[in-house]
């Protein structure tokens, strides 16, 4: 830079160019900021009101005769007290079945599309199908499980509920696992090839362990989704007033319990539904936070 040029720049800064922001612009800025804040408020209003209503209506019932809601069975109509221990167990059982089915298939699918398919026709097709599957209404997943499990086994069951949930969990798990696999730099794969590792050795000992935080995140997110689903369980797991004795019997779940009890004409059932809703929301929030901390541990 020459001396001449720097003189010029000084000239401009010292010379009076309009540095005052006009009042109109200031006001416009304030208006837009206000609008954005208002939009944010509207966006979080539903969540806030849901939490408020749940706490207002659910908390008192949750701590009535604590911990009876966690230990007792649903009461018959017009009887006070009771709880939904069977529904809590049922939600855990159906979600576990769903995870056991969807995790192996989902992770192996992701490994195929990212590590072996590498953008070939089949892996593109699989990815397209995954997108379609994630858009399938949950009631359709329930119909699918009804068709292939309930009709063939002859009755509603925890297994049928788990199959329905696994259909909903699969796309979430496939997508997060794919993301995890893609986050591993291609240099690492070349390095694996360079030391003479076979694809199997590379994937099982290096690629997959490095992807674990992502897979764990996917599984927890999928579980959070599945725990709240009602529609696919209505005609697969159905409902039961009692503790489940086997996986091939109808089973109670929190979401179906809410559905049944919220529309029941009894005050005690209604308040139990509020308590169950509170538990589901707390459970999902807890799982989501867990998922975030798991992702924070990722390597790449």
């Amino acid at each position: 830079m020459t001396l001449n040029q720097s003189d010029k720049i000084q000239d401009i800064t010292s010379g009076g160019f309009d540095s005052e922001v006009t009042a109109a612009r200031k006001n416009f800025g304030k208006l837009m900021t206000g609008l954005v804040v208002a939009c944010v408020g509207i966006a979080i209003l539903p969540l806030g009101s849901i939490l408020f209503m749940l706490l207002k209506n659910g908390l008192s019932r949750l701590f009535l005769n604590f911990p009876s809601v966690f230990t007792e069975l649903p009461p018959p109509p017009l009887v006070e007290g009771g709880g939904f221990s069977n529904a809590i167990m049922g939600t855990i059982i159906t979600c576990t079945i769903g995870a056991l089915l969807s995790v192996p298939f989902g992770v192996l699918t992701a490994i195929y599309t990212v590590e072996f398919g590498r953008g070939n026709k089949l892996s593109q097709f699989v990815r397209f199908c995954t997108n379609v599957l994630s858009g399938v209404p949950s009631i359709i997943a329930g119909l699918f499980a009804y068709g292939i499990v309930v009709l063939t086994m002859g009755n509603f069951s925890a297994i049928a509920g788990g199959v329905a949930l696994s259909v909903l969990m699969m796309p979430i798990i496939i997508r997060t696992a794919e993301e995890g696999l893609k986050s591993i730099p291609s240099e690492v794969r070349q390095g694996l090839v360079g030391i003479g590792a076979t694809n199997f050795q590379g994937v099982t000992s290096v690629i997959l362990p490095a992807t674990l935080p992502f897979i764990a995140t996917g599984v927890t997110l999928a579980l959070a989704r599945a725990a709240g689903e009602t529609a696919p369980l209505l005609f697969t797991a159905l409902f039961s007033q009692f503790q489940a004795r086997s996986l091939s019997e109808p089973i109670a779940t929190l979401s179906v319990l809410i559905y049944n009890f919220a529309i029941a004409p009894y005050a005690n059932q209604n308040s139990l539904a509020w308590a169950a809703a509170l538990i589901i929301v707390v459970l999902i929030m807890f799982v989501s936070i867990l998922a975030r901390t798991l992702t924070a541990r990722k390597i790449y």
């Binding site: 690492v188 070349q190 030391i195 050795q201």
Partner: peptide, 29 residues
């Protein structure tokens, strides 16, 4: 590739411990 090894342009250690980085290659061989 086991007879003819390769070192790449960008360092690409495996996401493992220093020990395992070396042991892994030896083990697969």
């Amino acid at each position: 590739r086991r007879r003819i090894g390769m070192v790449f342009q960008r360092p690409n250690p495996f996401p493992k411990s220093i020990y395992e980085n070396i042991a892994f290659g030896a083990r697969v061989n």
